[in-house]
Amino acid sequence: MTPVYLEHYLLVGAALFALGMIGFLARRNLIIMFLSAEMMLQGVAVNLVAFSRYRGNLGGQALTLFILTVAACEAAVALALILMLYRRRKSLDVSLWQELREPDQEPIVDEEPLPKRPEEEPSPRLTPAGRTPSPPTAVPQGARGDHTQEQETSHV
């Protein structure tokens, strides 16, 4: 008799799926939304493999491999999209794209201010010592190097 039953794996899969859905609905960071979608796929994969084991049939495992393929494609396209969206808005906040909402929807306005973070102490600065080096002159590098060497030797 198998000590772990089909039901338990199905329950784990369902819980992972629901957690992923919460993450996708509630979070506003594009990357975390993407990870939540991946977690929903993981829940489905657990389900399929459990059925595969339970029925003694490799169909579930084969289907999981295809899920893996789709997840890889999704990762590639989603990350490219995220990169493009980030370039436009300089932020990963999905609420910055809310002009794409339906026309009769109210916009989301953040009323509560973010807590102020303690200001970081500026890093200590050393007072510059010695003479400020003069900017390099526009003489070609090879020629100038030879020239200074000659000067130095003449001084000695």
Partner: peptide
């Protein structure tokens, strides 16, 4: 940290929806 990380969109409704789904799935599976 930014707005995207420090705020959630409708945390109550989102977690309610998720856990209602989870409860329904769990009951049906059970």
């Amino acid at each position: 940290l930014s707005d995207a990380d420090q705020r959630s969109r409708e945390p109550f409704l989102a977690s309610l929806a998720g856990f209602v789904l989870m409860g329904a799935l769990l009951c049906v599976l059970h």
